[in-house]
Design a protein around this nucleic acid. Structure first.
Lengths: 247, 247
DNA sequence: CGCGGTGTTGAAGGCATTCAATTGTTGTGG
DNA sequence: CCACAACAATTGAATGCCTTCAACACCGCG
């Protein structure tokens, strides 16, 4: 195997010679609208970064130094009230894009929920590219509109669903996203890329309530626990009905 | 008084000769980035529409026919679960922009919370303009990013705040927005542009709970009720602390 | 083995909901 | 101008869901 066989995931943090050719998310990330030539531009400014689960990627109110594609792992965006209460306001899976254009400071706390690999673009240079390649900017605009839609969907969950529906909905969402990442690979189980505490912070619940709903869903045979972080979902339809999407 | 004294608000619904010169939100809406010449383009496709409180502006899953600036009044965006539970996912005040670019169907239910006047642009023609005038598109992108920020802020409220904080936060938000619309005019009171039921749907509460929190805030002298839809806020700082933003 | 982190379970209590009744407001027709 | 209906808002009492606080189980690791 040549050295080019190694994936983006395995490459070094500060390896400046990154090869989008071997990038797993090349054809699904915002990069997909770029021509080979344009991709070369991007290649020159890109830098891979790795984070361990729990690492802070960007603090709130901290200057934004880079944008990034999520190459692997899951990233959480959190907001914290003065008294310490916190709420996760967004989860990013591969090949999501991380970063708010045209803002100098982050309005959220950004952390690695799992081990994470990012494909980073320096702030200023990336914004320059946005102006140079209108279809890249357009793509980013569409991605933002989708994020807005997702946020509003989540507002319904936070405001109007009960604990069981919330947990079911989260599992349903993770299952769908996992299917996308796996690109059709049927694993037979779903990995939960976060702790119960993270789930609670995403759902506006307490850890205890999340845990209780897990055991309840388990006893109803809607899910099966393989281990703490892996579940099996016998019937997605049933799960989606439990999540409040039934008729 | 010449006929040009009449405001946009008073103009007829299907008056094709609209004069942005007299538009109240000319210098605060997304139009503000447009030159006089570009504004002429817009003038040729614009159409004023009026809605009464409670009117449906656009149903969910309905094809999007137009974008619009909110000229006056308040617009609510709602999402509804199959069983009827509903959640307001966004409020639009003047000079907010209404409409999701690059979507053919609305993902939300759009209704007039109060009597509303819209400055409408036909779907296709407006998207053409977006491509013709990059800075208009850019402005819209920024507006979308702000909406996303606002949505996330609201997720914290929905997930982590109690009833008193929720109501206080809503009043605080309305007070701030009203101050912007009033352009510095100190009225001495704040108009509540929605029913208790709307407030409940925005806060993820029931009408009864909202009502109870009103009487509670009133007895704590944090607000004073002038009538059902007008309140006085003696001290904004106190209100913001009650809303959970204290230290 | 013991330790910290993570997850589960139990019991008690509180906050928001639910259901029900009353009051207040608005607009329409007699 | 008043009566009345329809709607909006408030208030009360009881229920229930989720939280809180506490204890215990599980797992990886030094």
């Amino acid at each position: 195997m040549s050295k080019y066989e190694k994936t983006l995931a395995e490459s070094e943090t500060n390896d400046s010679r990154v090869h989008c050719d071997h990038c797993k998310i090349r054809h699904s990330s915002i990069c997909k609208v770029l021509s080979d030539e344009e991709l070369n531009h991007l290649n020159q400014i890109v830098q891979t970064k790795k984070f361990k689960a729990g690492d802070v990627i960007l603090s709130e109110e901290q200057p934004i130094e880079f944008f990034a594609n999520i190459a692997s792992g899951v990233v959480k965006m959190t907001k914290i009230l003065p008294d310490g209460r916190q709420q996760i306001v967004g989860l990013l899976f591969p090949p999501d894009f991380l970063g708010q254009a045209y803002k100098n400071y982050s309005s959220v706390f950004i952390e690695a929920a799992t081990d994470v690999e990012l494909c980073c673009f320096p702030h200023v240079k990336f914004e320059e590219m946005l102006e140079k390649f209108p279809h890249l900017k357009h793509k980013l605009f569409e991605a933002t509109l989708n994020e807005l839609d997702a946020a509003r969907e989540w507002m319904v969950l936070l405001g109007r669903k009960n604990a069981e529906e919330k947990v079911a909905d989260l599992l349903f969402m993770i299952a769908k996203r996992s299917a996308l990442i796996g690109c059709g690979t049927i694993k037979g189980f779903v990995e939960l890329p976060m702790t119960r505490s993270d789930m609670a912070d995403y759902l506006g619940l307490t850890v205890e309530t999340v845990s209780r709903q897990f055991t309840s869903l388990k006893s109803k045979k809607i899910i099966t626990l393989i281990d703490n972080n892996h579940i099996d979902i016998p019937d997605l339809e049933t799960l989606s009905e439990t999540a409040g999407y039934g008729y």
